[in-house]
Design a protein around this nucleic acid. Structure first.
Lengths: 201, 201
DNA sequence: CATCATAACTTGACAACGTCAACATTGCCG
DNA sequence: CGGCAATGTTGACGTTGTCAAGTTATGATG
């Protein structure tokens, strides 16, 4: 009855799932995560208002899929950074910088990935991808020589470093330290890392 | 015409503003920040559905007032912790612990205070109270002897420490490190602080 | 090639929400 | 005591998430 407005005039979209996830990213970039709605995503993908619900179950399902996509990009980016920098302190630093870089560059993913109420943390696929990304960090820490550290608990060291870059990223994204530039954030993070490792040398 | 259902059967509530802010806290504690609505707050305060809008302008105004209340509590708590611990490292550590304690104990305030889209950051009163809280941190750093630090920039040191505790708090609240106890968080934070200051002794 | 189950999508409906305009009540100040 | 500003209420409108029921395409099977 009604002519479909999208690029191809078929009843079936073809790749609606990805189109909707792209739409979510565009909405967040333009109007913030609060403006994400199933109906707006549907509008941008050129489908009816309840097509997204059919694909993802509900709003939380859509955002969960978006977060999962983000964790895949995040994990591979951190792995690449680690590979290029090598083991030890250089790899550790590179992961921290990559973490910040990802948060600043892919704000939309970052927010949905790390905000509890924006996704379903019990989703098994999300759990898998997020765990994989954290594994890169733990591997980098395990590859370090911790013998000279005062408290050489790898988990504690990893969490401490993670918290520092995560805190910098969220504080910046939430506007609390908006006077800082990207470079400032990198500098502060590397300073904290360097101080943490000062007993190493 | 209609009998008011609240404790006192007066048309005027008396202290509706505070009652609504209390309601917001209760809603967040029970069902999360996403469940906050002007109408639900009105229901809990026993007033009509649009009374909150009359007081606070709109939903953002209500949450902004809630955040402001949180920053007052936060600032006075940090000041008290600093006063009790004294100057130097003890005061610095005490502020970090107090920061974590506040986030864990007053989750509702913390979320609204530090999430950009949940309040109006241009609100002058909010700006004032939040700036006051940050001033406590800067005062604690200024009271320290930084001469032995490798990079004795007070602002960078303050932001680094702030980011660490803020990251720990948000990661924990968002469930990313839910296997940790409160004490674990304190330990990690103090470890990072101690390592940062290891060149001091 | 015909058929038909099923996946993919639409349509229509409902309750809840934020917001606004118009109205009602109260306390207070002259 | 009279009116006026503050404080709430009522009703309405458009938007949202979600569900049920209907419609169209796909692809496997015969």
């Amino acid at each position: 009855m009604m002519v479909c407005m999208s690029s191809s005039d078929t009843y079936h979209h073809g790749d609606l799932r990805n189109a909707l996830l792209d739409a979510v990213g565009a909405i967040i970039d333009e109007k913030g995560v609060g403006a994400v709605s199933l109906r707006e995503a549907a509008r941008r993908a050129g489908v009816s208002h309840s097509a997204p619900g059919h694909h993802f179950g509900d709003k939380l399902g859509l955002l969960t899929a978006f977060a999962e996509r983000g964790f895949e990009l995040f994990g591979s980016g951190m792995q690449t950074a680690l590979d290029e920098a090598g083991q030890g302190r250089p790899g550790f630093d590179a992961i921290g910088i990559e973490y910040l870089r990802f948060a600043l560059e892919h704000r939309a993913y970052f927010e949905v990935m790390f905000r509890a109420e924006l996704h379903d943390s019990t989703d098994p696929e999300l759990h898998e991808t997020s765990h994989g990304a954290f594994g890169v960090l733990m591997r980098a820490v395990d590859d370090m020589d911790l013998s000279a550290y005062e408290n050489p608990d790898p988990l504690h060291l990893a969490i401490g470093a993670w918290a520092t870059v995560h805190g910098l990223a969220t504080l910046w994204l939430d506007g609390a330290i908006s006077q800082f530039t990207d470079e400032d954030l990198f500098t502060v993070a590397l300073n904290v890392f360097a101080l943490q490792a000062s007993s190493e040398e």
